[in-house]
Design a protein around this nucleic acid. Structure first.
Lengths: 196, 196
DNA sequence: GGCTACCAAGCTAGCGCTTGGGTGTGGGAG
DNA sequence: CTCCCACACCCAAGCGCTAGCTTGGTAGCC
């Protein structure tokens, strides 16, 4: 029938969202199936009507996020370096709002998840994202938009980290919208903090 | 006798270092006392001759690091803003080498540890560090060293995150020494990536 | 002969997950 | 319109396993 895949059911999606919040707050491994059950108003065993393991819940959360992210990045990376960079940073902050839980889990459990064969696709997605950013940076350096003495590798790590880690304090309902925050960050990244 | 505190014993310190590496690699909660015992060439139960709990091992690791950090920061923060900032960033990278394990754990388990009363001092230390950085930034803005349109709060988070998260990929024996890496980062932070 | 460092064995609590069964509801046959 | 039953959803109970930790005893050095 392949029914359970084609029509994922509302309830199933609800449970993923509920679990995601707990994973983000307490960590994936520290969150028990009983916690998830409690939060969903259900006994822990009942979760196994929807998922065949706790890992499957996490998988569904992460894979759906990463698929969307990589696709969006590919579209953005086309134009001029500075424009592309602005797009990437802005998109990163925008996704912080929508996918806070997924990103938090991805960061906090990264080392652990890399050891699990099932989550090998995380490394692939990470590599793809890296490729996209580095291409933009190299383009910018070659065309003279960015400084010639930049090390693309270090610069990429610097940008990636400083933007993504913001998930730790970023709140959707904070005083700054994602776009405003992206603007602030872009000014820091592009111009630096020195007065001239 | 209060002996076990005043003369901490070599072995005890060794065990903390061994456990720290495991905590950093696998995560604190995913590391079992049996893992620590194996790595130390000892049965898990024997650890309890030195520590009264697994938590105590972590406590010793984190508190000793934070005490040193805050003290060092206080000394650095005195001079001119740009010099002080250079000092803070350089010191941060230097401590990445010496205290990689402690910093990694501190980041990955931050949310979890904040919920444990015993580790309330983490929040206090964090606040103290924040105070020091923000003071330097405000000074720099007032004296005209840094741009006037900087938001100290956002700038602080930006700097802190981008520097500290480097612990994820920084290796003591990598191709760049901590000081060189700090220089690269400082150029990015101070000047930005834009060519002029 | 006391003290440090350890072993051997095992306790209890809580983990992810299974099993067998119950209940309400939507939709097709009569 | 009514009957009925297949199905989605959930409960109650508990299994096997591993976690952190305890207890009683021992080897070797100052």
């Amino acid at each position: 029938m392949a029914e359970s895949r084609s029509r994922p059911s509302e309830r199933r999606a609800d449970l993923v969202r509920i679990a995601a919040e707990l994973f983000a707050e307490r960590g994936y491994r520290a969150t028990t199936v009983r916690h998830i059950g409690d939060a969903a108003g259900v006994l822990s065993g009942s979760l196994y009507h929807h998922f065949d393991s706790k890992e499957t819940i996490l998988d569904e959360l992460l894979s759906s996020y990463l698929n969307e992210l990589v696709e969006t990045y590919r579209e953005i990376a086309g134009g001029k370096p500075v424009t592309a960079l602005r797009g990437l940073v802005t998109e990163a902050f925008r996704s912080l709002g929508e996918h806070r839980a997924a990103i938090t889990v991805l960061q906090n459990e990264r080392n652990y998840l890399r050891t699990i064969p099932r989550f090998a696709y995380l490394t692939k997605a990470e590599e793809e994202v890296r490729r996209i950013w580095i291409t933009v940076l190299r383009d910018g350096i070659e065309t003279g938009s960015f400084r010639a003495d930049l090390d693309p590798e270090i610069t990429y790590r610097f940008l990636r980290d400083s933007v993504w880690v913001a998930v730790r304090w970023f709140r959707q309902d904070g005083r700054l919208a994602p776009e405003q925050l992206a603007d602030q960050y872009l000014r820091l990244i592009l111009q630096g903090i020195t007065n001239r």
